[in-house]
Amino acid sequence: MAYSDKEKKRYQKQVTERMPKSNAFVQCISAFLVGGLICCIGQAIMTLGTEFFKFSKENTAAFTSMSMIFLGSFLTGLGVYDKIGKVAGAGSIIPITGFANSIVAPAMEHRFEGYILGVGAQMFTVAGPVLVYGVISSIIVGIIYCFI
């Protein structure tokens, strides 16, 4: 039995058509609610920084991102963050807590392979590209600003 390309194409089309679809509407609602909520926690930390600790603008920003990252890492360690992610999808991936999650998650399960090549090297398997492309694009923007 040899299968023609036409037959394969037809099969691929059938698979795409019949594949069970996720309920994007419900997913978007939960992404909105959880994402909004996480940002409100960030807003609360920011308010705490400016109103209570009287931090400068830069320090408030640093304080907020550090605290959010602490929260994301801690919840990942407890094994809670992936459960939030099951419901929230992008709502918990896009906020900076999700960035922290993507660093802790590979690091903690590579501890079996040791602290240097396990935890140390695997920490950025998921988050690495974000830093790489973020930094590169910021440098490009900076250089463009040098010349205009």
Binding site: S65, I96, I103, V104, V119, G142, I143
Partner: peptide, 28 residues
């Protein structure tokens, strides 16, 4: 232009590495 980006985000990246390592060591 080259150093500015990482200088501004140093807090976040350093915290991510530090807390990331810490919790990776503590939790299973």
């Amino acid at each position: 232009a080259i150093t500015g980006g990482l200088t501004a985000t140093a807090a976040g990246i350093a915290a991510a590495i530090f807390f990331g390592y810490l919790f990776a060591i503590i939790f299973k």
